[in-house]
């Protein structure tokens, strides 16, 4: 609800178009964070709960797009070549054995932005066109 209104049309368009249209996904942090670059392995470790320390030493707080969002499906497909059911099965193992916690789930992409900007160490994936001066791209999928 705190999403700036000028972003809303873009966000809506983004959800509708999904990534089927080919809009690339990028991994971002708040521009105030000091980290510049992450490798695909770093991003995998953070989002799969294996290792969540950023190069700055700060704990990483990964944020997921909504559970049914096409962005979420596209992200894990590109990151680890897994569909949503496999990712959910992966997390059910860790959750029910009381180990790592999954990335924080959001209800809308507006909430993703809000958490990115308010939480220290927050890291998320968005469509490239959503990136503005408040965000910094730390990882892009190779073309």
């Amino acid at each position: 609800m705190t999403t700036p209104t000028r972003l809303l049309p873009l966000l809506l368009l983004g959800s509708l178009a999904g990534t089927a249209a080919g809009e690339p996904l990028v991994v971002v942090v708040s521009a105030q964070q000091r980290i510049e670059r992450l490798s695909q392995e770093d991003v995998t470790n953070i989002f799969l709960g294996r290792f969540r320390t950023l190069p700055s030493g700060l704990p990483a707080a990964p944020i997921d797009q909504p559970a049914n969002s096409p962005l979420r499906a596209a992200f894990y497909q590109q990151l680890v070549n897994k569909d949503v059911a496999s990712i959910n099965a992966y997390w059910s193992r860790l959750h029910f054995s009381g180990k790592a916690t999954p990335p924080r789930q959001t209800n809308s992409d507006g909430e993703v932005l809000r958490q990115l900007l308010s939480q220290p160490g927050a890291i998320a994936y968005v469509e490239r066109r959503q990136v503005d001066a408040r965000l910094r791209i730390v990882f892009e999928f190779p073309p």
């Binding site: 099965a89 992966y90 059910s92 193992r93 029910f96 054995s97 009381g98």
Partner: peptide
Amino acid sequence: RVGRMGTEFFMQADSRNVGYAN
């Protein structure tokens, strides 16, 4: 962790009852 928790004598032993994960 402190309390009662799953044993992992072998890999995945502590999630062997979670059928959906396997």
